[in-house]
Structure formats: C-alpha cells, structure tokens
C-alpha cells in the first residue's frame, strides 16, 4: 500500500480585505473610468513606445545573427513577446499578431534547434513595414495576407515536432 503524505489546507487571515474594506464586492466603475481616461492621456506617447519596441526587436534580431547563443535567443524572444503583449494597446494590432507568430516560432522550437534565419527576418521585416506604414487597423488586406503567410510558415516549421 502506498504511503499517504499529509496535506495541510488552511485559510490565511484576509488582511487585504481588512485593509481596503468595501462591502459590495463589485468593480469600482468610477475608478475604471479614471483609468481609461488616464490611458487616453498616454496615447500621445504610444507612437514613441511602439517605435522603441520595434527598435529593440530589430536590435535583438541583429544580435542573434551576430552571436546565435542562448542569451541572444532569449533576448529576441523577450523582445517579440513584449511586442506581442503590448502592440495592440499601442494601436498596432497587426504588429501584435506578427510578434505572436514570431514568439511561437522561437518559443516552441527546442533550444537545441537553430532558429530559421529567413523566417526570423521575414517576421522582423513585416513588423518594420507595418510600423513604417502606420497600419493601425486590423483590416489591411495586404498585411493580413502577410500575417497569414507567416503563420503558415511557422506552422510548417513546427509541424514535424508536434
């Protein structure tokens, strides 16, 4: 018979509730409105922020080309992942989509497998083009076709490993 290990389950005191109070448990709509307004106030900075992120990605890609090791690969993944997570907030949803594809490629290929240079460049190039052309909607047909092609190429690359 297998030996049973003990499990301890307990509820710590809810110090947070004691600190902030609030009896209704709902969302604070006024606070959310203030937050939406505050984000609107940041919008003038978004153009600079996305430019910084694209620049960081291009630099990380160049560094990986120069020295393709675990550190530069991790830095490239972080740069792609950052853009995936925030480009939509900065009003560039298609850049977020391309970055998601790039993140998937880098994240799902085993560390021992070399990253395909052509496909990395295609993603980095697509992000630069979408940024340069200021495509802030998700309905540009040419860009959508490009995104679909990149997705398909990544699928092909990852398929043998599934």
């Amino acid at each position: 018979m297998k030996r049973q290990q003990p499990i301890e389950l307990f509820m710590p005191p809810n110090m947070l509730k004691a600190k902030v109070g609030g009896g209704l448990g709902g969302l604070d709509m006024a606070a959310m409105k203030r937050a939406e307004a505050a984000i609107d106030g940041l919008k003038s900075e978004f153009a600079g922020w996305i430019a910084d992120d694209v620049h960081a990605l291009v630099a990380a890609r160049a560094q990986y080309a120069k020295a393709p090791d675990a550190g530069s690969r991790a830095a490239l993944l972080r740069a792609a992942h950052d853009i995936k997570g925030q480009a939509a907030t900065f009003n560039f949803p298609l850049i977020a989509r391309v970055a998601a594809s790039l993140s998937r490629l880098i994240g799902e290929l085993p560390p021992a497998a070399a990253l395909p240079a052509g496909l990395l460049d295609a993603h980095a190039g697509a992000i630069q083009v979408i940024h340069r052309q200021g495509l802030q909607t998700s309905d540009d047909k040419t860009a959508l076709a490009l995104c679909a092609e990149l997705d398909a190429r990544v699928d092909e690359m990852l398929a043998p490993r599934k």
């Binding site: 499990i7 509820m11 902030v20 448990g25 937050a35």
Partner: peptide, 19 residues
C-alpha cells in the same frame, strides 16, 4: 486589472502545504 484586484481581495484562496 480591476477584476483581478477585487478577486484577490474578495475571494482569497486557501493555502496548501504539501511536501
């Protein structure tokens, strides 16, 4: 963000200790 903040205030989960 608001929803998750309210969740940790209103619905804290019990803690578990095992090996």
């Amino acid at each position: 963000m608001m929803s998750r903040l309210v969740s940790v205030i209103e619905h804290p989960r019990p803690f578990v200790r095992t090996s």
